Structure formats: C-alpha cells, structure tokens
Amino acid sequence: MSVNALYTDLSGYYDLMCVDIDYQAQSNAIRRLHQIFGNGGTAHLDLACGTGPHVRHFIDSGYASSGLDINQPMLDITAKRCPEALFTLQDMSTFDVSEPLDLITCFLYSIHYNDGIEKLTTCIASAHRALATDGVFCFNAVDKDKIDNGLSVKHTARQESDLFTFRSGWHYSGQGERQSLRLSIEKANADATQVWNDEHPMVAVSFEELTALLAPYFEVHVFEHNYETIIPWDNVSGNAIFVCVKR
C-alpha cells in the first residue's frame, strides 16, 4: 500500500483504530491550559481534525470550533459528527482563516505530519498569523532523539464479526529531519485475514529545535504528556505538550 494510503482509503476504520483514546480527557486538559494561558476567547480551530471527536468535545464545552484536514473522507465523517461546525479541506502547513482565533489545537502528534522543517516552520507561522492577540497554539510532540524504534503500541477492537488488530510505532534513523509513523491494520474473521501496512513520513525534531522554531513567534511553555495533571516537562521524557502564547 502506498504512503498514506491507509489513512486515505481506510478512513472508515479511523475511529475504530483510535477507540482507546480518551478524547474527553485530552480536550479537557487543553481547555484548562487555555484558561490559564489564553485570552478568554472561544474561537477555536483544530488542525488535522480527523473525524472530529476533539472538536465535538470543544463545542459541547461552549467553544465556537472549526477544523481542517487534508482528507475529504475524514471531513465527511466529521461533518456528520459536528454539523454545527465549519470544516475545510486545507493543508495545516499553509492554512488560512477568515477571522482571528483564540485557540488552535493539534492533537495526536499530528503536528509531525508537516514532513520537514520547512513545512513545520510554515505551519508555525500560519498558526501565529491566524491567532488573535494572546491567542494560544497547543499541540503534543515527540522528541526525535528519544524515539525507540523497537517500541510500538497495539490494541484490538471488534466490529460485528470482524476482529481488528491495530499497531503503530515511531521510527527514526538517527539523522536528518524525517521520521515515520509505521501503522498496520489486521482484519480477521472466520473466512480470512487481511493486513494493511502503511508508513507516514513525518518531521523529526528535538524539543530544543522545536522550541527554537517557536520562540520568534510565541512564548513557549512545555508540559509533561499527562492529560490528568498539569506538570512542567521534566526535560527527560520524549513526549510533551507545548502551549504557545502569541507574542
């Protein structure tokens, strides 16, 4: 299967693949951070919104939310989940908005879908341009220097008579500005087993490099990748939440 084909062609499986994600806890944590660091506004945009579960939680909490994604089948599902929101087919590295925003989010490490430093820098500039005064850009990221290529996560989910097994893991060669997210879906039933494998090219960046890219545009705060408690990053762990306040 070609690069990103799994994401494009199997978008109907996306929610099942992410069934173990606590979207509400993630949304609540970012709303708490926005309350602490933000300007009090509620105009919100979710980058790489996928099928929209985070947007749904923000809307239900009183935000005027919208989303963008590069995949129309994903947006078709999102429009049904959040009919009151506006969703646009855009690349997050070069997106435009019609009105200033108070909060921009990017969940599930999707900031790395900017598959090079140049695109990541453009995305950061686009977010800065789109935000109102004291607006906040929140996302989670992984440090390239702390990736263990031998680690992966796995979970299973059942849909009717089919048993799905999902696996994902980061891979970094140890040099350069590209890493990848390796994904697989196994679909098994009494008749057959099918397996799809995919590899998504993504930007590789250390937290030191990422902070340097953000600093000209934002006041940067880094927290532990913990959606239950707000804890400053320990400068050791390889996953973190970035809270960036527009300068």
Results as ranks from 00 to 15, higher is better:
1 M>I: 01
5 A>Y: 13
9 D>Y: 07
10 L>F: 15
15 D>G: 13
15 D>A: 09
16 L>P: 01
18 C>G: 03
19 V>F: 09
21 I>V: 14
24 Q>K: 15
28 N>R: 13
44 H>D: 04
47 L>E: 05
49 C>R: 06
50 G>V: 14
56 R>P: 00
64 A>D: 00
64 A>L: 07
70 I>A: 05
77 I>K: 03
78 T>N: 11
79 A>M: 10
80 K>R: 07
83 P>A: 09
84 E>K: 04
88 T>V: 03
88 T>S: 15
88 T>N: 15
90 Q>N: 09
91 D>E: 01
100 P>R: 11
102 D>N: 04
103 L>K: 05
104 I>Q: 00
113 Y>I: 08
115 D>V: 03
119 K>A: 02
120 L>Y: 04
120 L>T: 04
121 T>C: 03
122 T>V: 01
123 C>A: 14
124 I>D: 01
130 A>Q: 08
135 G>D: 11
138 C>I: 15
138 C>A: 12
139 F>M: 09
142 V>F: 06
142 V>E: 00
147 I>V: 13
148 D>S: 11
155 H>E: 12
156 T>E: 15
157 A>E: 08
158 R>L: 10
158 R>D: 15
160 E>G: 01
161 S>M: 15
168 S>M: 12
171 H>E: 11
171 H>S: 09
173 S>H: 13
173 S>T: 13
176 G>N: 02
176 G>I: 01
177 E>K: 14
180 S>A: 07
181 L>D: 07
192 A>C: 07
197 N>Y: 14
209 E>I: 11
211 T>P: 04
219 E>M: 06
219 E>R: 10
219 E>C: 01
222 V>W: 10
223 F>Q: 04
224 E>Q: 10
226 N>G: 03
228 E>F: 06
232 P>Y: 09
236 V>A: 13
238 G>L: 05
239 N>Q: 11
239 N>Y: 14
239 N>G: 01
244 C>A: 08
